[in-house]
Design a protein around this nucleic acid. Structure first.
Lengths: 209, 209
DNA sequence: CAGCAAATTAAATGGACATTCAAAAAAATT
DNA sequence: AATTTTTTTGAATGTCCATTTAATTTGCTG
């Protein structure tokens, strides 16, 4: 006897690119934030940036807040991926790796206006949002751990005396501050100068002699 | 014939403490931002923090935006005043002055939760507000000029090779990033650690030997 | 092609908010 | 005390916005 296989009728679920559509929303969120600011992003501006009608958001996300959080998580993921890649491509010397990681934060694909502006918004809003604070910590905790590990190795190899955890915080927060400064006044804090400032910092802590 | 002098009757204008009331609003804005976040500050929360009714704001400011800008300008003024004072009290040695100025940004009266949170909000919103961007630049331009001047003198006195403008930007943005980091995760980026990070940075660029 | 389900739209709904306004309270002068 | 003005209030107003909903379109399946 033939097994009564329950066949899907109508349009098969999963045939459409649900995840792709969600990604389109994420891109639209980044564009909308970059254009209007985190404070003034509305469902209307997001959907306009995506070319969708206002109501569609409800079919792919529980609501505006969930979409915003999802977008920020994507930015954090991209950041992590890109810095890992940069470190991997830099070879074995820990100081080279530090320069590579820090340099990557001022170059594509990490450093795009959209990503930086979203990140600055995240960092400055985390204080009042447990969800954003968690995203922030979940990215920075292992990131700083990796940096301090590299710092320790570089210091040991050179006989330099540093506090690895503190210097790791210094690096992450200098980058964050430079991003913030670029966002506020890109003429004064250009990406090029910002990157140079980071390399100078590493040179100061690890003098080549 | 007696000159018909128009005498003011009733309550004389200017006898009440208008400026004092405006300052009460400023304090209330800082409290309200610290509690609810820049994005979620409303006229209602501000007036509640001040103990006034909602409608009163209209008698002392053209509107909410004007009050917010006024409050941020006050914070910027206080910042400038306090750093100048710190520099003045530090004596003549330029490196001592740099340490003092940077240290002051992590101590009262500059470093209070309210002020830091307002500043973080300002910095991260300047990109989308010409008015905020102007406040930001008007504070930072002369501030960085003063820092780079001190850096240059300290470097000349010690025969150290640095780029004064770049290091000045590094200092301001490291402080900004540390403030931002403290706001997002005060446990990891404590005021004490943040200040130590800044002193370490100066020590790295100006080694005592 | 017919029928059905998913995808999408655009308008409706309801709530939050800044601002305005008329009235009341407070304060100062005559 | 009476009068005039300032200060303050709290409700009314109108706008903006996220979300919901019914209706429409699109595309698959038989």
């Amino acid at each position: 006897m033939q097994e009564a296989v329950k066949r899907a009728r109508g349009r098969p679920v999963g045939s459409s690119d649900q995840e792709g559509k969600r990604q389109e929303f994420v891109v639209a969120v980044m564009r909308a934030i970059a254009e209007h600011g985190y404070k003034d992003v509305t469902v209307a501006t997001i959907c306009k940036a995506a070319g969708f009608s206002r109501g569609l958001i409800g079919h792919y996300f529980p609501g505006k807040d969930a979409l915003l959080l999802h977008a920020v998580r994507e930015v954090a993921k991209d950041f992590e991926r890109a810095t890992r890649t940069a470190a991997g491509e830099a070879g074995q010397d820990p100081l080279d790796r530090l320069h590579a990681v820090v340099g990557a934060t001022f170059r594509k694909p990490v450093f795009t206006p959209e990503r930086v502006l979203v990140w600055v918004a995240l960092a400055s809003t985390s204080h009042w949002s447990p969800e954003l604070a968690e995203i922030y910590r979940k990215l920075y905790r292992p990131y700083r751990r990796g940096l301090s590990h590299l710092i320790k190795r570089a210091a040991d190899a050179r006989g330099v005396n540093v506090n690895p955890e503190r210097l790791a915080i210094t690096l992450t927060q200098l980058v964050e501050g430079l991003w913030s400064g670029w966002a506020a006044d890109p003429k004064t804090v250009s990406a090029r100068e910002a990157e140079a400032a980071c390399h100078d910092l590493l040179d100061a802590f690890f003098p080549s002699r």
